[in-house]
Computed example of a mutant assay.
Amino acid sequence: MSYPSPAPVQSVARRPVACAGVLLTAALVLLGALQAPPAAADPGTPRAAAATAHPHSAPRVAAAVLDLDGDSREPVVRGDDTPYDTASIVKLDILAALLLRAQDAGRPLTARERALAEPMIEHSDNAAANALWRRIGGAPGLEAANRRLGLRATEGGPGHRWGLTRTTAWDQIRLLRAIFDDPEPGGGTPALHPGSRRYIRTLMSRVAPEQAWGVSAASGSATALKNGWLRRSTTGLWDVNSVGRITAGGHRYLVAVLSDGSATMDEGVAMVERAAKAAVASAARA
Score class of each variant (00 low, 15 high):
residue 1 M to H: 12
residue 2 S to Q: 13
residue 2 S to G: 03
residue 3 Y to G: 04
residue 3 Y to F: 14
residue 4 P to L: 13
residue 5 S to G: 03
residue 7 A to W: 05
residue 7 A to K: 15
residue 8 P to G: 11
residue 8 P to N: 09
residue 11 S to C: 01
residue 13 A to V: 03
residue 22 V to Q: 13
residue 22 V to L: 12
residue 26 A to M: 14
residue 26 A to R: 14
residue 28 L to T: 12
residue 29 V to G: 14
residue 31 L to C: 03
residue 32 G to V: 05
residue 33 A to Q: 09
residue 35 Q to D: 08
residue 35 Q to M: 09
residue 37 P to L: 12
residue 40 A to I: 01
residue 47 R to C: 00
residue 48 A to N: 09
residue 50 A to H: 07
residue 54 H to P: 00
residue 54 H to T: 08
residue 54 H to C: 02
residue 60 R to D: 01
residue 66 L to Q: 01
residue 68 L to M: 04
residue 69 D to R: 04
residue 69 D to S: 11
residue 70 G to Q: 02
residue 71 D to E: 11
residue 74 E to V: 07
residue 75 P to E: 09
residue 75 P to F: 04
residue 76 V to S: 08
residue 79 G to H: 02
residue 81 D to I: 08
residue 85 D to E: 13
residue 86 T to N: 06
residue 91 K to A: 02
residue 93 D to V: 00
residue 100 L to R: 08
residue 107 R to D: 04
residue 113 E to K: 02
residue 120 M to H: 06
residue 122 E to R: 15
residue 124 S to Y: 06
residue 124 S to Q: 04
residue 127 A to Q: 10
residue 127 A to L: 14
residue 128 A to W: 02
residue 129 A to K: 03
residue 133 W to D: 06
residue 135 R to W: 06
residue 138 G to C: 10
residue 139 A to N: 06
residue 143 E to C: 09
residue 146 N to C: 03
residue 150 G to T: 05
residue 153 A to E: 14
residue 163 G to K: 11
residue 169 A to I: 08
residue 169 A to V: 07
residue 171 D to N: 05
residue 174 R to E: 14
residue 178 A to P: 08
residue 186 G to T: 11
residue 197 R to F: 04
residue 201 R to A: 15
residue 211 Q to E: 13
residue 216 S to I: 04
residue 218 A to P: 07
residue 227 N to V: 12
residue 237 L to W: 03
residue 239 D to W: 10
residue 239 D to N: 13
residue 240 V to H: 05
residue 241 N to E: 10
residue 250 G to M: 06
residue 255 V to I: 09
residue 258 L to T: 06
residue 261 G to L: 03
residue 267 E to K: 10
residue 267 E to R: 15
residue 268 G to T: 05
residue 269 V to L: 13
residue 273 E to F: 06
residue 274 R to W: 04
residue 275 A to F: 02
residue 277 K to V: 15
residue 277 K to L: 15
